[in-house]
Amino acid sequence: MATRPGTGTPALRHELPPAAVAAMHAQLPTLADDVVAAIVEEVPSYRDAFSGPMGETISDAVELALGGFLILASRGRAADVRTAPAEGSYQLGRGEARSGRTTDALLSAYRIGARVAWRELSTTAVRHGLGAEVLADFAELVFAYIDEQSAAAVAGHTDELATTGRVRQRLLERVANHLLQGSPVDQVVTAAERADWEPPRTLTAVLVPESQVRQLLTALAPGTLQAADAPGLEEGALLLVPDAHAHRRPALLRILADRGAIAGPARPWLDVRASYDRALRARAAGLEVDTEAHLVSLVLDADASARADLRAQLLAPLEGLRPGTAEKLTDTLRCWLLHQGRRDEVAAALFVHPQTVRYRMGQLRELYGDRLDDPDTVLALTVALG
């Protein structure tokens, strides 16, 4: 068996008799219908796809491919005749990817087509006197040709998935960017429709290291968005996870555990920027995994300079004391606030005698007067010393 330059398809050592080739050409319409019928029967995913007018279109395509093969077999000029049928197979593969069918189904169809075609064509060849040696060459050429067409179809399928995946990823990133930039609702909704992305009830912003993105995307909900160039994000990546609220949040936190990630609160999907901003603040504060477990710290540290000013203002009555005394009274005042004035609990927290607490609180009352009974002052001191 020789191989023609420029193609992997072998050429026959012996020419096929013209009468046999003519007979094979004559049977192509019937053979194409038989191939389609066999595929429909044996590959379930093609039953609906090949029904009605679509079945006729596929039958015509099969007839064209088989006609190209017979030209190849009769002339032995593979390089001249395989381009069009191979291009057809390539485009078929792309179409199958767009239809959501797998390469397994596609390759099954080619195998079935090869089997049916060989059975019918070989019968005609024998009937026209082809000897065993020529028939063996013919068989090898049939299956080599089908291999070429299968490879072209798989290449088309792979290219379509890659192209579709890249395009859709860009569209999804555009949705995320609109959400983070606060774009008008109609723009966000339009972007979601173009990306074929169904808006969830809520979105949760999750900051993750770059090294964890791929693994997390396989573990999180399929509709998770990955934001590109999120505003204010200097390192790591931002994922927007759909419907991870209420009883679903613990599952999200288990996935994120030990990954250096931080999850903001669940928010209505159009308000996810608030979740992202909180996650950013939490990471800046050195927190991990769950912002909702650190709400007090986040509130108290929301404006560090304002809190420092508040603390200085409220502790002004202690400025004239010795540093050691001021520190002890400050600690006592903090515990008194946190334990709501229960002297024994304050003493236990400070590891001192209750009488010491009584003495210190007497000092503080002398310094603050009635202000320690004022609800606004108590609230301000609790925030400042919390």
Score class of each variant (00 low, 15 high):
residue 158 T to V: 11
residue 358 R to L: 04
residue 352 V to M: 14
residue 372 L to W: 09
residue 233 L to E: 05
residue 375 P to A: 13
residue 111 R to Q: 13
residue 366 E to V: 11
residue 248 R to M: 00
residue 77 R to Y: 09
residue 127 R to C: 04
residue 249 R to G: 03
residue 134 V to W: 03
residue 248 R to P: 00
residue 215 Q to I: 02
residue 27 Q to R: 15
residue 227 A to Y: 02
residue 186 D to G: 02
residue 191 A to G: 04
residue 170 R to Y: 00
residue 370 D to L: 03
residue 162 A to Y: 04
residue 195 A to R: 04
residue 68 G to R: 06
residue 332 T to H: 09
residue 168 R to Q: 13
residue 252 L to S: 01
residue 353 H to E: 14
residue 159 D to F: 01
residue 47 R to M: 04
residue 37 A to P: 01
residue 215 Q to N: 13
residue 138 F to D: 13
residue 134 V to K: 12
residue 322 R to K: 11
residue 34 D to N: 14
residue 333 L to Y: 12
residue 15 E to Q: 13
residue 7 T to P: 02
residue 216 L to W: 07
residue 152 A to I: 01
residue 104 D to F: 10
residue 178 H to R: 12
residue 250 P to T: 09
residue 354 P to E: 09
residue 282 A to R: 08
residue 223 G to Q: 13
residue 233 L to I: 03
residue 87 E to C: 02
residue 65 A to M: 10
residue 364 L to T: 10
residue 314 L to T: 07
residue 256 L to Y: 07
residue 21 V to N: 10
residue 303 D to G: 02
residue 368 Y to F: 14
residue 321 L to N: 05
residue 367 L to P: 03
residue 86 A to D: 00
residue 259 R to W: 01
residue 164 T to S: 15
residue 315 L to F: 12
residue 54 M to F: 13
residue 31 L to G: 02
residue 384 A to L: 05
residue 139 A to I: 00
residue 186 D to I: 06
residue 282 A to H: 08
residue 8 G to C: 07
residue 286 G to E: 10
residue 345 E to G: 00
residue 61 A to Y: 04
residue 152 A to M: 10
residue 278 R to K: 11
residue 9 T to K: 09
residue 198 E to C: 06
residue 223 G to R: 11
residue 228 A to P: 00
residue 190 T to M: 02
residue 304 A to V: 09
residue 364 L to K: 11
residue 170 R to Q: 13
residue 187 Q to F: 03
residue 163 T to Q: 15
residue 247 H to L: 09
residue 80 D to L: 10
residue 92 L to Q: 13
residue 44 P to Y: 12
residue 317 P to E: 10
residue 7 T to K: 03
residue 351 F to C: 05
residue 348 A to Q: 12
residue 253 L to R: 04
residue 268 P to Q: 10
residue 88 G to H: 10
residue 85 P to A: 08
residue 139 A to N: 14
residue 181 Q to F: 01
residue 16 L to M: 12
residue 308 A to L: 13
residue 335 C to E: 15
residue 81 V to S: 03
residue 10 P to C: 07
residue 224 T to Y: 02
residue 213 V to A: 13
residue 108 S to H: 09
residue 317 P to H: 12
residue 243 D to N: 09
residue 306 A to T: 13
residue 109 A to E: 11
residue 65 A to G: 14
residue 45 S to I: 12
residue 176 A to W: 02
residue 376 D to T: 13
residue 39 I to K: 06
residue 163 T to P: 01
residue 105 A to Y: 14
residue 229 D to R: 12
residue 249 R to P: 01
residue 256 L to T: 02
residue 109 A to G: 15
residue 265 P to G: 08
residue 248 R to K: 12
residue 141 L to Q: 14
residue 184 P to I: 05
residue 92 L to M: 14
residue 143 F to G: 00
residue 216 L to F: 04
residue 323 P to G: 06
residue 109 A to N: 08
residue 292 E to Q: 14
residue 331 D to A: 15
residue 216 L to I: 08
residue 246 A to R: 11
residue 179 L to E: 00
residue 161 L to C: 05
residue 111 R to N: 15
residue 328 K to W: 10
residue 14 H to N: 08
residue 239 L to E: 04
residue 83 T to W: 07
residue 228 A to R: 11
residue 201 R to W: 03
residue 290 D to C: 06
residue 243 D to C: 01
residue 368 Y to G: 00
